[in-house]
C-alpha cells in the first residue's frame, strides 16, 4: 500500500517535472538574443520541411472535405428548399472549424510526428549532447527554428485548406449539382464576416500551431533515446497533440462564438 502511494507520488512528481521541463525548454528556446544571420537559413530550412512539404496533403484533403461538404450540405438543404445557403454553410464550416482543426490534426500527423522522430533520433545518436558539449545551445540551434517554422506554417496551411475547401464546395455545388453561381457567392458573402469568421479561424490556428509544435518538440526532446522510446514518443505526439487540439477547439469556440 505504501509502495503504491510512493509510486503515485513519484509519477505526480515526474509529470510536474515534465510540464516544468516543457515550459523551460520553450522559454529557453525562444528567449535570448536572436542571431538573424545564423537563424534565418535554419528557419528557411525548417519552413521547407514543415510547411512546404505538408502543402500537398493539405490541398488534397481540403479539396475533398470541401467537396464532401458541398455534397452533404446540398442533399440536406435541398429538402428545405434552402440550397442557396450551401455557400455560407461550406464557408462557415471550413473557416470556423474544419480549416483550423483538420489542418492541426493533419499537421500533428505529418509534421509533428516527424519533428518528434527527428529530434528523438538526434538525441539517440548523441547529436544534441554533442552540440551542448561544443558550446552550442541545442535549444536555440535545433528547437527554436523548428518551433517558429511550425508556428508560421500552420496558419498558412489552414488558410490554404479553407480556400481550397471552399473551391471544392463550389465545384460540387455549382458546377455539378447546379446551385446558382451568383447566389452561391453572394449568400456566402452576406454571411461570412472578415473579423468574426476569417480572423477568428486564423487565431484558432495560431493557438493550435503553438500547442502542436510545442508538444511535438518536447516529446522528441524528452524521449527515452532508444528505438522503443522514439516510437513511443512519436505516437504520443500524435495522440496528445490531437486531443489537445480538439479540447482547445471547444474552449476557443465557446469563447469566440458562444
Amino acid at each position: 500500500m505504501l509502495d503504491r502511494i510512493a509510486a503515485l507520488g513519484r509519477s505526480v512528481l515526474d509529470s510536474i517535472a515534465g510540464a516544468g521541463a516543457a515550459f523551460f525548454m520553450l522559454m529557453r528556446a525562444l528567449l535570448g538574443k536572436p542571431q538573424l544571420r545564423k537563424s534565418w537559413p535554419l528557419l528557411m530550412q525548417q519552413m521547407y520541411s514543415v510547411g512546404v512539404l505538408s502543402l500537398v496533403i493539405i490541398v488534397v484533403s481540403g479539396l475533398f472535405i470541401g467537396m464532401v461538404l458541398g455534397l452533404q450540405g446540398y442533399t440536406i438543404l435541398v429538402d428545405f428548399g434552402a440550397e442557396q445557403s450551401l455557400g455560407p454553410m461550406v464557408a462557415l464550416s471550413l473557416l470556423r472549424e474544419l480549416g483550423p482543426v483538420v489542418t492541426a490534426l493533419l499537421f500533428a500527423g505529418r509534421a509533428g510526428s516527424s519533428l518528434t522522430a527527428e529530434i528523438g533520433l538526434m538525441k539517440a545518436t548523441e547529436q544534441l549532447s554533442s552540440l551542448e558539449m561544443m558550446g552550442v545551445d541545442p535549444l536555440r540551434r535545433v528547437i527554436s527554428p523548428r518551433f517558429w517554422a511550425g508556428f508560421y506554417s500552420m496558419p498558412i496551411l489552414a488558410i490554404v485548406f479553407s480556400a481550397v475547401g471552399i473551391y471544392g464546395g463550389y465545384l460540387v455545388g455549382v458546377r455539378w449539382l447546379g446551385v446558382d453561381d451568383g447566389a452561391f457567392w453572394s449568400v456566402m458573402q452576406s454571411n461570412v464576416e472578415w473579423g468574426q469568421d476569417i480572423l477568428n479561424g486564423i487565431i484558432k490556428s495560431l493557438v493550435f500551431a503553438f500547442v502542436v509544435t510545442w508538444i511535438a518538440l518536447h516529446k522528441g526532446y524528452s524521449c527515452t533515446p532508444t528505438s522503443v522510446g522514439i516510437s513511443r514518443a512519436t505516437t504520443s505526439t500524435v495522440v496528445t497533440a490531437s486531443l489537445a487540439v480538439l479540447g482547445l477547439d471547444f474552449v476557443l469556440t465557446a469563447l469566440m462564438f458562444g
Partner: peptide, 18 residues
C-alpha cells in the same frame, strides 16, 4: 509557400467574406 498563403487569404477576404 508564403505567396500561396497570401493568395488564399486574399481569395477568402475578397470572394468569400462580405
Amino acid at each position: 509557400f508564403v505567396i500561396i498563403g497570401v493568395l488564399a487569404l486574399l481569395f477568402l477576404g475578397l470572394q468569400a467574406a462580405n
